[in-house]
């Protein structure tokens, strides 16, 4: 019969194995961050492959120009993917990314001009527009209790319409000074912004809001029972992601130096691709914006690799699609192996 003891020995395990269910700390760290680790490994491999191809073709290593243009090209997607991560972590999905980037990109092309102060104010206002767009999504999802996928499908259409209203024809211009600050064409200084995003992510991960975002992505009902305000958390998460998309719009305008109300459309789907490549679970509650940023850089590297491998650009999306499936399947397989290796 059981002892009348307050201690709980491992149920059913023999006493000579007191730590029956325990695993080394490293195993937990690897197992619980396998998505991130995989994303960064794929990124590393793709960088190596690209470097190899480039060196073979050009008889030199990729230099400042190649690195700078890769980083600058990736910035809008890296920011969009970071925003998408916040939404996906709450177990949502945001299809309006493209619309918000269209809109903010169009606004930037029209209003960015004049003095430094003026440009700073305009940039801040554009970020606010992104926040408002995200807030609308958040309110509809949080308070309206509507499914994220259909809400953002509808708001995508609204934001796209607004973008065309703002900038009916491609045009406008972005001052070169602005471009130099955001996407300096001479040095990969935009990596600084990536660093900021990573720092921001690490702070979020250690904040009450971060815990709340992860908790509702894990199990919304349980999170509510634990005292987490799910509606408020979702509204904040969507709003923050709106700000990030707007920042993506600014970077897009800065690197294109002019505006187009439809160039942002692609980011709806590519941000999802980056998030998936970054190891963020589409079922919510698991993942990291760092991974998603890595995912964004992976997609850029793939395009670079295809270019230097002389793949017909018409086939580009074929290889990208194939790569996405293979990456996800392999990622899942490695994840399973990591979990099984106890």
């Amino acid at each position: 019969m059981p002892r009348e003891s307050p201690d709980l020995a491992p149920a059913g395990a023999p006493d000579d194995e007191p730590a029956g269910t325990r695993r080394p700390r490293a195993a937990h760290i690897i197992g619980q961050n396998i998505g991130l680790i995989l994303a960064l490994s794929i990124l590393l491999v793709s960088v190596v492959v690209f470097t190899g191809l480039f060196a073979f073709e050009q008889r030199r290593l990729p230099g400042n120009f190649e690195i700078t243009s890769s980083v600058n090209n990736t910035m809008p997607l890296a920011l969009a993917a970071s925003g998408q991560t916040l939404v996906v972590l709450t177990r949502g999905i945001d299809l309006s990314v493209g619309g918000v980037i269209d809109l903010t990109n169009a606004l930037a092309a029209i209003f960015l001009a004049g003095s430094v102060l003026h440009m700073i104010v305009v940039s801040a206002l554009i970020l606010l527009v992104g926040a408002a767009a995200g807030l609308l999504n958040g309110l509809l999802v949080g308070l309206g209790r509507l499914q994220p996928i259909v809400v953002t499908l509808a708001t995508l259409s609204i934001f796209q319409g607004l973008a065309i209203r703002v900038l009916p024809q491609p045009g406008g211009s972005v001052p070169t000074g602005y471009t130099a600050v955001l996407v300096n064409p001479n040095a990969p200084s935009a990596l600084l912004f990536v660093g900021l995003a990573v720092l921001g992510w690490m702070a979020l991960r250690r904040s009450r809001l971060g815990v709340a975002i992860f908790a509702i992505g894990n199990d919304e009902q349980a999170a509510i029972t634990l005292g987490i305000r799910a509606q408020r958390t979702k509204i904040i998460a969507y709003t923050l992601s709106g700000v990030l998309y707007a920042a993506g719009g600014l970077f897009l305008a800065a690197s294109a130096t002019s505006g187009d109300a439809t160039t942002g459309d692609v980011y709806t789907l590519t941000s999802i691709v980056a998030v998936v490549l970054g190891g963020v679970s589409l079922f919510g509650g698991r993942g990291s914006a760092i991974g998603a940023i890595g995912g964004a850089f992976i997609t850029t590297m793939i395009v670079n690799i295809l270019f230097f491998a002389h793949i017909d650009p018409l086939y580009q999306s074929f290889y990208e699609g194939l790569f996405l499936v293979i990456a996800v399947v392999l990622g899942a397989a490695v994840g399973r192996l990591a979990r099984r290796a106890r």
Partner: peptide, 19 residues
């Protein structure tokens, strides 16, 4: 409550000390 409220993809420690 009867329905357990542990968050599956968070660690035991995070669950235990939440808040």
């Amino acid at each position: 409550f009867q329905e357990l409220t542990l968050l599956p993809w968070m660690s035991v420690a995070e669950n235990l000390l939440i808040g």
